[in-house]
Amino acid sequence: MAEFTGQDLTCIRGERVVFSKLAFSIDEGEVLYLQGPNGSGKSTLLRLMAGLLRPVSGELLWGGENTRDDPEIFRGRLHYVGHQDAVKTALTVEENLTFWAEMSGAEPEKRLVRDALKTFSLTHLAALPARFLSAGQRKRLNLARICASAAPLWLLDEPANSLDTDSVVALRHAIAAHQDKGGMVAVATHEELVSDSNILDISEFTSSNRGAL
């Protein structure tokens, strides 16, 4: 059984302690909600989970093994959605999607790409250069990217931002389908995306340690 956990995580950004002694655990098929006021470090925690940031102390474990032991294998297991959409405006919607599917290393599966486009109702835009897309459509394209190639762990930073109601429903379905396949999700969001989920309140790990250097 694979399980994604973090222990004793402390993160310092600039010269400020963002959070300290933070621990979390995501099991297969589970969703972890990150909560906390703005600036409490939800994005930082997600970037840290992805391995973009290095914690000052503590470690991330996948099935009991430290993710730093083989970072390339760990990176193959996750999809990250950040604030920016990573959409190249000169490429068409489909080219954008296929490129990221190819970059994951496996031969891109046409079926997955097609389904991802359908899930986020982008099929009719597939041949359109991405510069014609609205902010919401770009966000959908970025979300379709994580459906277009398989990875067990999704790290989603405000995925519902600039999405309309229908697209939020689509996202909800995508997450549910991912959960059914045993996928894990860590998400920071204001929207209700899944009914039952674990909640991690980051402010618990910040206030008591504020200013400790």
Partner: peptide, 15 residues
């Protein structure tokens, strides 16, 4: 770097 693609490139399972 500006459009976020760099994050994703760093996160691909390639060296």
């Amino acid at each position: 770097y500006e459009d976020g693609s760099l994050d994703l490139l760093v996160l691909t399972p390639q060296p």
